[in-house]
Nucleic acid binder design. Structure first.
Lengths: 127, 127
DNA sequence: ATTTTACCCTCCAGTTACTGGAGAGGTTAT
DNA sequence: ATAACCTCTCCAGTAACTGGAGGGTAAAAT
């Protein structure tokens, strides 16, 4: 499989697949005579795995760890759960921050009359 | 005021103040004989304003706009409210995405027994 | 007066995870 | 043969800083 085909099948941009090869995340199994990257089905599985993990906001480094657990059949569910739980905590923390931010800003926006007068509680609060 | 003093007073790292000067966000009023950046009280107000706006997740470009509205006494509350509302919408959108992410991941983490067996629903789902 | 300490400068590189483009070469179809 | 399409490498840019090297300046302590 050349890069265009695996990109389509994994639903990732070609540039991204090339990038993953560059950083050693998913390495092509070889090169053609012309120097084209060649991929096998294992690589395809890994790329799809990574796309899914990324869609869960796992960082590339976390994906690397997850991928190692994914391909290592000796890994225990505990290892995976630990990684995912830590990630979940980070997401929850972000959620709280965002909630706080939202409430404060919503309060200010509500307080602003929003007409042509220059007087504005949002600016007043920030300044 | 030299950069160290205004950094302390605005509660921003020196590096950041220098960076804001570089990108023309808050320019020093002048330079000393030795080439030190010199700031006045107006700059201090602006830096504090920006720090607060940044803490609300406004981007640097949005800060630039807000700052223009802040220093322009002709601006109307409508202009400010418009900017803040758009930002609020983005925050809400992010919140929804994060909520979705959280729910899915939490579901997976709950489903994972997390013991020494290699069988793991998280990996199963991703792979 | 000198030394130490603290401060300031510029420039370069790195962070995250790609993305866009230039310029060149390979492959396929008509 | 030529056009259309694919692939390659390398460079630069994104956002908003942060860290460090190497070197000059100012203020305080001795």
């Amino acid at each position: 499989m050349k890069i265009g085909e695996i990109a389509k099948k994994s639903d990732l941009p070609i540039k991204t697949v090339r990038y993953y090869a560059d950083i050693g995340l998913v390495t092509p199994s070889g090169r053609s005579d012309a120097g084209y990257r060649l991929y096998d089905l294992e690589a395809l599985k890994q790329l799809i795995f990574i796309r899914r993990a990324r869609s869960f906001d796992f960082s590339i480094d976390q994906c690397r760890e997850l991928l190692a657990l994914y391909t290592n059949h000796q890994r225990s569910a505990a290892d995976v759960k630990k990684l995912a739980s830590a990630h979940l905590e980070m997401i929850q923390k972000k959620q709280l921050e965002l909630q706080h931010l939202h409430d404060e800003l919503a309060h200010l926006v509500n307080a602003c009359h929003g007409d042509e007068r220059p007087n504005c509680p949002i600016i007043d609060f920030l300044g």
